[in-house]
């Protein structure tokens, strides 16, 4: 999910950084309610520091600033994971509600904590049921238009690399090579996307001995396997 918008120099407001430095959650019976409201306040402050005031949203520019403040590339898979955790609906944007519930779930209220939370988030995502959800989310996240159901092949290739590249390097390379080679499909559906993961997960690679095209694999995988077998000869 490449963002093309140019990064604008928008230094984080010193106030927010300061406040996050000086405050920490103090657990205590009396302070509990207060602490919660304060936490919400801090989360909101953090939100406001990146938000586009006119839209009331963190827009792509804000996201990029956030990324650079955390010291990660905006194309990093962890940002996608953050979006997943925040249940962000629209690519490149975070709404206030998404931000609040997401950061609360992450138990962070300032930039430093957010930065530190990223590795934990990564482990969370990598646990099986979460990963499948995340994987499907990645596809949906790419549906930017209303009523859009398919994602074009180039984006799919990048996305595959991003989300599966570390686990299934060989498969992803093969699949992307095939996707770029073939001319039958210009866009892919959710079903095909989900089955790519199933394929990587279930099929022994590169020998493919347990692949059976009589099973319910989508046609694109049948042709991919055929192409692969043909190439091997």
């Amino acid at each position: 999910m490449p963002r093309t918008s140019k990064r604008k120099a928008a230094p984080p407001s010193s106030a927010s950084v300061k406040s996050s430095d000086s405050l920490s959650v103090r657990p205590g019976k009396a302070g509990a309610v207060k602490a919660v409201t304060k936490e919400v306040d801090r989360i909101d402050q953090l939100f406001d520091s990146y938000a586009n005031k006119d839209l009331g949203l963190i827009d792509p520019e804000g996201v990029e600033t956030l990324c650079s403040d955390m010291g990660v590339q905006h194309t990093d898979v962890r940002i996608l994971m953050l979006a997943w955790k925040l249940k962000a609906k629209k690519q490149g944007y975070f709404s206030k509600d998404e931000w609040r519930t997401g950061l609360k779930a992450l138990k962070v209220d300032n930039l430093e904590k957010l930065k530190k939370a990223l590795p934990t988030l990564e482990t969370e995502v990598m646990t099986p049921p979460n990963f499948e959800d995340f994987y499907a989310y990645a596809f949906k996240y790419c549906l930017t238009e209303e009523m859009q159901k398919c994602v074009d092949v180039e984006t799919i290739c990048e996305l595959l690399n991003l989300v599966l590249g570390s686990q299934f390097c060989a498969q992803v390379d093969s699949i992307t090579e095939y996707l770029k080679f073939q001319s039958d499909y210009r866009v892919l559906t959710m079903d095909q996307w989900v089955n790519f993961y199933r394929f990587c997960h279930e099929i022994s690679f590169p020998d493919l001995h347990n692949y059976d095209s009589d099973q319910a694999w989508p046609l694109i995988l049948d042709s991919f396997v055929e192409w692969l077998r043909e190439k091997r000869k």
Partner: peptide, 22 residues
């Protein structure tokens, strides 16, 4: 298969969440 996939796409069918063969 092609037709089945098209029907999945048009949300007449879905693959079972637990068993993709169904």
């Amino acid at each position: 298969k092609k037709r089945i996939e098209s029907l999945i796409d048009r949300e007449y069918l879905e693959r079972d969440k637990n068993n993709p063969q169904i």
